[in-house]
């Protein structure tokens, strides 16, 4: 079975979700629930840290597509950070870098939120 965990913490009113393991059609619903919880609590400034994510398929990418519109409607964003080459390649093939801001590390993503507000 695919191992996948999400660790959430807050940094200056920005939520950081750190993903670990394998994000596929089996584990994507877990990420979906996490996003849902954040949005229900009115948190729209989100960073997803991919440092410990080993794998992603289109089912995982679909989750980001699913929530980005509502998040931006509320003046928020989903910023992505610390992607491995393997994970970035899949994002890149589908043209995601056009739609999402991708940062080298979490700190840069945090700064980009702070500079905006």
């Amino acid at each position: 079975m695919s191992e996948f965990t999400i660790d959430a913490h807050e940094h200056d009113q920005i939520r950081v979700l750190s993903l670990k393991g394998y994000l596929d059609a089996h584990t994507a619903p877990q990420l979906e629930s996490s996003f849902q919880r954040e949005l229900e609590s009115g948190r729209y400034k989100l960073i997803v840290n991919f440092r410990d994510l080993d794998y992603i398929s289109s089912a995982g990418l679909g989750v980001f597509m699913q929530f980005i519109e509502e998040v931006r409607k509320h003046d928020g964003d989903i910023k992505l950070a610390n992607m491995s080459k393997r994970v970035y390649n899949v994002f890149d093939l589908l043209g995601f870098p056009v739609l999402f801001e991708i940062f080298e590390d979490e700190k840069e993503a945090l700064l980009s939120f702070q500079n905006k507000s």
Partner: peptide
């Protein structure tokens, strides 16, 4: 491009 404009979910498997 159209796909992203409409924020569509899924259906990317065959393309990949």
């Amino acid at each position: 491009q159209k796909y992203f404009k409409e924020y569509r979910v899924g259906g990317l498997g065959i393309f990949l």
